[in-house]
Nucleic acid binder design. Structure first.
Lengths: 340, 340
DNA sequence: CTGAAAGCGCTAACAT
DNA sequence: ATGTTAGCGCTTTCAG
């Protein structure tokens, strides 16, 4: 299993070949200062000649670090995974990490076995830090990681009083401004398609929706709320349901871009004109530019910044471990196509 | 960085606590035979009491293995990532690996920096094996891994004479049978929307399409072929283009399910009725049951089996490293909704 | 069945 | 600037 073939050269052999001590070779491969240029060159030649590759297990045993972090996906439904939101975040994490010389990996955790296996893996020191996304309310994984003193940062929080470090968007504010915008454009019967309500972000968006209505002196009607699971299909179903209950709907706040797309299909199928008859605003998961749909306005989440912020928090915690949890909440932005 | 807090107990401390030798503790945590049951119990209590967690760096240095494999995604375009094909394969790999006690990780490689970093990572012995998918024609990564004697298995091949081990579907046969089916149902002007033609799988499907036409005594017309990149959007565009050139089209073979979905949209937008006027068959990336679209027939790829086969090849290579490359090609199946 | 001892290949502190 | 040395924490013979 995975054993390196006998011939694999070690640092010691490189040292011998180059006629220097092990320390020097170590300094060269780690790009450490304090090696004469001529020596460095000689060592590099030996490395080249022998085809030397550092043994990372040995390195991390000695140095007590791995230079790798992992993003954990606990989503039991893999399809989540196929959402643009996800790939955008991953891209931004990768970019943010590129400069640091760290390796980003993904770990997929759905079954309980996998969860346990991952915990052993992480606590066993195979990664220097852990990033988590879309963690559901009751999930204790982040706490277990934090208790193991492993630098841990979540995207989104599990509840209103979260301790483990996280980066989140201002979901309440985003939803509120979207609904206010619809109201200001004369819409009066505004429905919302929420995300899965065991996700705190979905609760926040619903709250923002309600806030805005209340502030405008309107009461929020329960039958104007339908739940989705962020997929296009569930958006379609939710919209159909809402239309059945309230044919007079003239505005919709959708939990995500994908959901909004589904809602649009249902609206059209029902003969509604968008955006003339009904105006739809969704939370923007990727880029407005990608829409071919006639949505003029979306709540833009700063995904790029969120990824960067996650890495920053993680690195801070890795560099000087502290007892503090840190939280960053990024503002969302109401964007219309013209201004994009 | 990532250093374990001073208090972390080691195997030696567990041994002391339990009043046994290190070897015994090692046997216990590895579930090795040859430990008296009573001793085993005592040791387990000490492990529990001290909250011992094995240091995996030390373990893999000593044992020369990591019990982890990684799936590498070289796709420069992250959106690929959001395709159902991808999540299905990942799921099936995860399932197949679950029994083996191995950890599955994903590595994302787009830039050249990342590619180099991954190579160091893999050759440094951080994983026991590597799985690759959607490798493009000119990519040398698989060869470099294989040359480093790392067990390596690809999903799909880069060309007609591939050496590195792979599992593939019978793309030529699948396309051929799909087109034959269309012909047998009386369709006469059959177009195809191919995948990106630098992907061998896409070439094969195109070849199958052409074969079927030729066998039926029809000549394959170049203007009936349009290229897509597997996305819905490109499918839509390709279909629109084809319709412009050949309004008389009455059958379409699409490169993937997603592409087929796009094609359908374009067809409808152009006022065609599906499947009455035009019949569309796509390569099935996930499950027929998921379609809400009126496609009756798809070419089903046995994704589940493909994942399992990949793991089997990988494990075989890990258990008894040999000089042989192994190839498995799985049959596709033409499935219609009724028979599903 | 169990203990002792010899590494695994590297980093980092300490000499020089 | 460079060589030397002492571990890092575990697996795995080899004795007993």
């Amino acid at each position: 299993m995975g054993m390196r073939r006998p011939g694999t050269p070690t640092l010691e052999e490189v040292a011998a070949h180059a006629g220097v001590g092990r320390g020097t070779v170590s300094r060269v491969i780690n790009n450490a200062a304090g090696v004469k240029d001529s020596t460095r060159r000689i060592v590099q030649q030996s490395i080249e000649a022998l085809g030397y590759v550092p043994n990372l297990a040995a390195r991390s045993l000695a140095a007590r670090r791995t230079d790798a972090v992992t993003l954990v996906l606990t989503e039991p439904d893999w399809r989540q995974f196929a959402e643009p939101f996800f790939s955008e975040i991953v891209r931004s994490l990768g970019d943010a990490l590129a400069d640091t010389g760290m390796q980003l990996m993904l770990t997929l955790v759905h079954s309980d076995t996998e969860r346990k296996r991952f915990l052993e893996y992480a606590r066993g020191g195979r990664v220097d830090g852990v990033l988590l996304m879309s963690v559901h309310a009751g999930d204790r994984l982040p706490d277990m990681l934090a208790e193991a003193r492993l630098p841990t940062v979540m995207l989104g929080r599990r509840s209103g009083d979260e301790y483990v470090s996280y980066v989140d968007a201002d979901n309440v504010g985003g939803a509120r401004s979207a609904v206010s915008h619809l109201l200001s454009r004369g819409r009066r019967t505004i429905a919302t398609i929420t995300g899965p309500l065991d996700l705190y972000a979905a609760q926040c968006r619903l709250r923002g929706y309600q806030d805005a209505l209340t502030s405008a002196g309107l009461s929020s009607v329960e039958s104007l709320v339908a739940e989705s699971d962020f997929t296009e299909d569930s958006g379609r179903r939710a919209m159909a349901e809402l239309l059945e209950r309230h044919p007079e709907i003239d505005g919709v706040l959708a939990a995500s871009d994908t959901t909004a797309a589904g809602a649009l299909q249902a609206l059209r199928a029902a003969g509604r004109r968008v955006p003339e008859d009904v105006s739809v605003i969704g939370f923007d998961d990727f880029a407005l530019a990608q829409h071919t749909e006639p949505r003029l306005t979306t709540v833009r989440q700063p995904l790029e910044e969120m990824g960067r912020a996650m890495i920053r928090l993680l690195l801070e915690d890795m560099e000087e471990p502290s007892m503090a949890y840190r939280h960053v909440i990024l503002r969302t932005q109401l964007v219309t196509r013209d201004s994009a």
